[in-house]
């Protein structure tokens, strides 16, 4: 490795890292939080067995899980403009990834909610709480604890999935590496560096996951 490449990598590292902080991570967090809300709604619809809505949710999960995310991205970013709906790269990626998280995590969340003994819900009722108050104060906090490890998996997967948004012209980590490399032709080193950036972000998340799990364990 020449000195030139080292200097180049040192310079690009900061750029890639900042793009990660400014684009990939916000996209991950936005998509994950929206997706989690969708997952909760889908799970609650399944649990409470609301007629029609329940079937609709099944169809939604079926479609999202059965089609590649990159196809979904293309449909939203390149396809929707044909019928007059236009979203920016970031918003398109956000929509698609939220829907994906919602579909994949809904089953995790459903199982976690149902793992909380039904008697606690009855106790809430006797305490004068409504269904939603019981969910917020008692059921969901415990369900989240159960669902935490699988959900951590999902968010780590999501960090990496943000690279798919490269295909809909989002200037994220991979696209930035590509741009630099197309000037210097050091594709090998820059793509490795891009991988390293993802690895760093995912490692941080893994540590956060471990710490949080230990903290949750103390509170039960």
């Amino acid at each position: 490795m020449s000195e030139r490449i080292l200097t180049e990598l040192a310079e690009s590292f900061g750029k890639l890292f900042m793009v990660g902080l400014k684009v990939s991570i916000p996209l991950t967090l936005a998509a994950f939080s929206t997706g989690l809300m969708i997952a909760f709604l889908v799970a609650l619809v399944q649990i409470t067995k609301i007629p029609v809505l329940k079937q609709l949710m099944r169809i939604y999960v079926w479609i999202i899980r059965g089609t590649p995310m990159i196809v979904q991205l293309f449909v939203v970013y390149f396809g929707l403009p044909n019928i007059g709906i236009r979203f920016s790269s970031f918003v398109s990626a956000w929509i698609v990834m939220s829907l994906s998280v919602g579909a994949y995590c809904s089953e995790t969340v459903r199982a976690a909610i149902q793992s909380v003994p039904i008697g606690q819900l009855e106790a809430c009722y006797c305490d004068g709480l409504s269904f939603w108050q019981a969910m917020i104060h008692v059921i969901v906090p415990q369900a989240l604890r159960t669902a935490f490890p699988p959900l951590s998996n999902s968010i780590i997967g999501l960090v990496k999935d943000t690279s798919l948004a490269y295909n809909v012209a989002l200037v994220e980590i991979l696209a930035t590496a590509q741009r630099i490399a197309s000037r210097t032709y050091d594709y090998f080193w820059l793509y490795l560096e891009a991988g390293l950036i993802y690895l760093i972000f995912c490692s941080v998340l893994t540590v956060v996951q471990r710490k949080t799990e230990a903290w949750l364990e103390r509170r039960r």
Binding site: V116, G119, Q120, E122, A123, H137, R219
Partner: peptide, 11 residues
């Protein structure tokens, strides 16, 4: 109301 299985809130 007091339940057979206590049903305390785990959190």
């Amino acid at each position: 109301f007091v339940f057979q299985t206590f049903n305390l809130y785990g959190n």
